[in-house]
Amino acid sequence: MKIRLRVWRQAGPNSAGSLETHDLEDVSPDMSFLEMLDVLNERLIEEDREEIAFDHDCREGICGSCSLMIDGRAHGPQHKTTACQLHMRHYSDGDEIVVEPWRVKAFPVVKDLVVDRSSFDRIIRAGGYISVRTGSARDANEAPIRKADSDLAFDAATCIGCGACAAACPNASASLFTAAKISHLALVPQGQAERYDRVRKMVAQMDAEGFGHCTNHNECEAACPKGISVTNIARMNRDFLRAMVVSRDPLRAPDDAGE
């Protein structure tokens, strides 16, 4: 089938970008969206033109590398599906598709469709861990966990950190990502010791990175390829407001963004 792509091209972080039109003549419905871009890139290389830069790794929907805004929807039109798992059979002959990078200040464009998501790494580094002695592993069933809580923790832990939540948010807020990373530790016994310090540190870092604030539009939940619920954001808010009361430790200032 014929597909017309309008792809964002930007030479570097500080260059001006624009949409570039490419017509593809025989796109197979069995191709994934990224395979279609591969075919286009092969053609561009043969024509001695610069190929389109885009992030990808596992192509199985689990690594969180792909980050395409396809026709105004993060990861494209399929619900709970990453761009790499989106197949061209969902399109019809003659469709025009606009492809853009995530538009978030804290995710600066590196080139074309590739954005730098290190801000997420810095939020994790601020507190998204538990401090335990490494070495011999403890028995996995030593600490009893309520089944309902372990399920909720696992749901939160399925976050692949792709950034679709912040990309889809009208405020470019990273609340769903940060809330998921706070929740999957706040719900299990191992995460309790640092629970209220963690939430303060991670929220402070999220703000320092320049993300917007949450106004409860729920666009993040709808865009999330893992279907992570906004109830995690309520949990983050609850823990954070509680932390302001119960946590007496002064807080180290957040890492400078983009150091």
Binding site: D71, A172, G210, G212, E219
Partner: peptide, 22 residues
């Protein structure tokens, strides 16, 4: 804060879950 968080907007952006009120 939110206005500063997205200095370059989308050419195409769809709303999936937000309401007219929100």
């Amino acid at each position: 804060i939110s206005n500063a968080a997205r200095p370059v907007g989308y050419r195409s952006k769809k709303s999936l879950a937000s309401t007219y009120a929100s």
